[in-house]
Nucleic acid binder design. Structure first.
Lengths: 325, 325
DNA sequence: ACATGATATTGTCTAGGACATGAATATCTC
DNA sequence: GAGATATTCATGTCCTAGACAATATCATGT
């Protein structure tokens, strides 16, 4: 992830006439802004500085930290590598170039090339800011494949490709956001017909607090919709006790939770054990999303679904075990 | 907001066998969990304790704070009152009962009673967890009124009514979430037909980082869609520089930002000034959402739209000033 | 090769002090 | 008395530096 000047420019927080809290001087960010933009807590930023000697922000007249954009950019790269399993101690002692190598190795080349063309087509439209063209293109593939195959075979790898393109500096963050938004429109419109399904099992969908991404949840929903199952989504960032109460109120058979890669695995394990202990054994808990691959130990009573295909398999399995009453 | 035992029960974080970070012992929350659930930062929680003597959490064997649920509940009430303009110094010195009075006074009675019936109908369905019934009911009103009137005259007051019902303890948080999710489905399906609009002006929609609610953004979108304007949404939590870059890339005439009541007004002002200074004067900035009423001073070059109706008026105004080329 | 124990790593918590911004209040002038 | 300006108060965020628990890694013994 080489930091080109243009790229930095786009990330420049603006000279705020009087604001200290959020923004700061043109080319530097205050600690709260860095927390926002990197997802690393203030405590972590400070303790890394103490322990590893990075980042080393400048200071304003008041002794407060001011992070140069170059360091913020590097922190972002580090965070991403951590999200895919690396440990901070290693990463923080690496040189700039070693980091770059690691980042690019991350972008493993796609195996099949059939999906390559689609990905190029999509990325091209995103880069050209042709949102309606993008939507049409996605819709066509959706119709061709059907919702489930579209989600499993096209959308999942596509999301990875988009993230990788962003890491290579080919896409801006806002382009990624705009892509996600259009994808959402496409998926939601395809899900509308099955909004009134009534067959078993009954799903409750949500993400935990601190989860930023909503796409994983939506993909789960899109996968379940054509199965005709009943699902109720609570949306993102639902406190644990609320999930428990909702599971009871909606009489859910399965509580499905989505976790993106950036979710703290520590917190995830704690939360899952927490939820598991409040809702009855008869209610299953399924967990999906990028995080799963990083979860070492199993959590008793919680079913990890490492991929969306796994999730469908688990659903079929459930139906075998629970023949209609 | 009387804290009934049942209500507390629902809010109970679960005895986690080994988790300290997120959850804690049955009836108590660790500081990070309180931060999550109340939206008050750890710093604020600690400094309030020091200065005002509330909250006064217990301590675990390790000297770490453990907040009883009753205090968390009270903190939530305080936060809500702050969101509607009260100052912490006053609120924190109030007794339990005084807080209750203030909370209930908050719920000003609806003026017209015509909307009262609809609200009762909706709340009844939400409480009965009849999500498809709710969706149907909302859809009927949507068809009756048309999207724009539905949003302005029905959804906006309805959202307030739901929040108030929650404050009175008539609705659980998860019920509010489920409601929001269904509303989203209804609104999005109504917006689909106008997804390919091409007429002027060109909108860019987003919320800033730290914004939790996505409903305000969606309502803005729903209002704009029938006008045939072109809009691109970047979704929630978009960093300022990204918004700026996107405004340029999409050649936006107007950048519209949504702020919920719980957004820090300090941060909002700083961010808006920040954005204003990076994008060209010719690109307008419109701001909507509950927060607006709490903003004291004007921000030069930023148009506040205190209500959704205001926003439509502003749009008409813009069109007068910018006759099609 | 695999289980067990020792060590290192890492994130989060604690305390109390400091300061800048914005709100509220007092003072001055007309 | 009204309005402008200065002063005091209120409040959130930041600071340092130490501590500890949970996990990951490594080493040892079987």
């Amino acid at each position: 992830m080489q930091v080109t000047p243009e790229r930095m420019n786009l990330l420049t927080e603006i000279p705020a006439t009087s604001a200290t809290t959020t923004a700061s001087i043109a080319s530097h960010l205050a600690i709260s802004a860095v927390e926002r933009d990197t997802g690393l807590s203030k405590d972590v930023l400070r303790v890394w500085e103490r322990r590893y000697g990075f980042p080393v922000p400048e200071r304003d007249t008041n002794g407060e930290r001011l992070y140069p954009l170059s360091q913020v950019e590097r922190l972002r790269a580090i965070k991403r590598l951590m999200d895919s399993g690396h440990r901070p101690g290693k990463l923080l002692s690496l040189s700039e170039s070693e980091l770059d190598t690691l980042s690019s190795r991350q972008n493993r080349p796609r195996r099949g090339d059939e999906s390559g063309d689609l990905q190029r087509q999509v990325i091209e439209r995103v880069r050209g800011h042709d949102m309606s063209g993008l939507r049409q293109y996605l819709s066509i593939w959706l119709m061709k494949q059907g919702l489930q195959d579209f989600v499993v075979e096209t959308v999942a790898p596509l999301n990875r490709a988009i993230t990788e393109a962003w890491m290579r500096g080919e896409l801006e963050v806002f382009e990624e956001r705009a892509y996600a938004e259009q994808l959402q429109v496409v998926l939601r419109s395809a899900m509308l017909p099955s909004v009134n399904s009534t067959s078993e099992p009954r799903f409750l969908l949500a993400t935990l607090p601190n989860e930023v991404s909503s796409l994983g949840l939506l993909m789960m929903q899109a996968l379940l919709a054509p199965e005709g199952v009943q699902y109720t989504s609570l949306g993102t960032q639902v406190p644990i006790p609320e999930i428990a109460a909702a599971a009871k109120a909606f009489d859910a058979d399965i509580v499905a939770l989505a976790f993106s890669a950036s979710f703290s695995s520590k917190q995830a394990v704690a939360s899952l054990e927490s939820i598991r202990s409040v809702i009855p054994e008869s209610t299953k808990i399924w967990v999906g999303g990028e995080l799963i691959r990083r979860l070492r130990r199993d959590i008793p009573g919680v079913t990890p679904t490492g991929s969306l295909a796994d999730m469908l398999a688990a659903l079929r399995q459930w139906r075998v075990e629970h023949p209609a009453a």
